[in-house]
Simulated assay, not measured.
Amino acid sequence: MTIMQLLMLLGGLLILAGSFIVAWLTGVRRSYLLLLSASFLVLALAFLVTFLFGLYRLTPLLSVANGLFIVAQVLFAEGLLQRRGKTFGVAFNVTAFLVLFGLYSFFQIYGTAFQRTIVINVGLAVVMGLAMLRFWIRRDDTLHDKLIFWTIIALGVMHCLRTAVMLFTGIIADPSSILWQATQIYILMIAMILTIEILASHFVESLDRLNTLRDRDRLTGVLNREGFERAVSGLCGEGSSTPVALTLLDLDNFKLTNDTLGHPVGDAVLMAFGQILLSETRATDVVGRIGGDEFAILSLGLDRQGACAMAERIRIHLAHRRFPEVSDGLEATCSIGVAIARSERGYETLYRMSDNALYGAKRLGRNRVVADGAPSAAAPGEVSRAGA
């Protein structure tokens, strides 16, 4: 390897390592980014030590270089898994390094350079193979995950082909040969492509996370008004006749609770109500806080009976909820209005219908559900309604 080749290789690896560090500094600071960066830095150091071995032919330098190659691969595999939300664990990683380096050291003393090289290549292929088994993509994975997976497979195929050539020919890769240089360039290019894919995925996920934080009400965990309106804008409109249920919910006498017991108590009620809404609705329902103590639920494909049953569950759940952590004997209730219409009529029409139903629930004494202007049937085991 010439000095120019070394500089190009080190430059490429440092750029890759630096890219992950920049991503860690500018986005969500995920640990896998540092692991991938560390793997490229260690790999660059391994090539530098290999170059020094070529100059001075000191056997300890060769041992250090191969040890660094092993560390780089183990860090890379662990980083990929942590990006996936999985891990080999410290014990496995340390054991993998000790076993591979131990085998290398054994063959350095009692074997040949060919045997050492084959052991390292096969051992690292096993580690990456195990990582890919845990990384395995599913049908519902994102395009980024699929691209990353198949790029790693392409990288592994080249690694295995190079090992197979060495195994069947008995010739150790010669850094001065065109074949060795071509494979190194190929591996570096695949590594650069893989880095771009991982970084793109990281920034897309960070953007999605920021959008989620922007649209989420931090106190209750449901969507804020802007997020709710954005979510429902594409669900109600022209060209669709899907039945849509809009449920408006208003905490009863909430201002009085705030004024007499204080805002911390009011916040506790809001937080509990947000949890109740999320627990009693479907995953496909859009739940939002559209005012101080006003909430809304948009449900596609839910008929009047289903929407009223959901509203009754919410009402009863809240009525039975106690708040001993903030105030002994504190109770909270809500009034609920439900409206059903076809989505083609638009959100504003549906909102007016549901708002009229909510007004009817308050006029009839609060702590009740009114659907399309008529009180819903009482659910079995329902608590008594105030003012009924």
Rank of each mutant, 00 (worst) to 15 (best):
L7H: 08
L10H: 13
L13D: 06
F20E: 05
V42G: 01
A44D: 03
F53H: 15
A77C: 15
Q82A: 08
V90M: 09
N93W: 02
F97T: 14
G102W: 03
Q115V: 08
T117R: 10
A125G: 10
M128Q: 10
M132E: 01
I137A: 04
K146D: 04
M166P: 10
M192R: 11
I193Y: 15
E197L: 15
S201R: 13
H202D: 02
D208I: 05
D215W: 03
E229A: 12
A231I: 11
L235S: 13
L235Y: 08
S240G: 09
S241V: 04
T242G: 09
T247N: 08
T247G: 07
L248H: 07
L256S: 14
T257M: 11
P264R: 11
V265M: 00
D267E: 10
G288A: 07
E294L: 08
Q305C: 04
G306C: 01
A309V: 11
M310E: 02
R315S: 07
H317M: 06
P324T: 15
G337E: 06
V338T: 01
V338C: 04
G346L: 11
N356I: 05
Y359P: 03
A361F: 08
V370D: 04
G373Q: 08
G373S: 07
P380I: 03
E382R: 10
E382C: 12
E382G: 13
A386D: 14
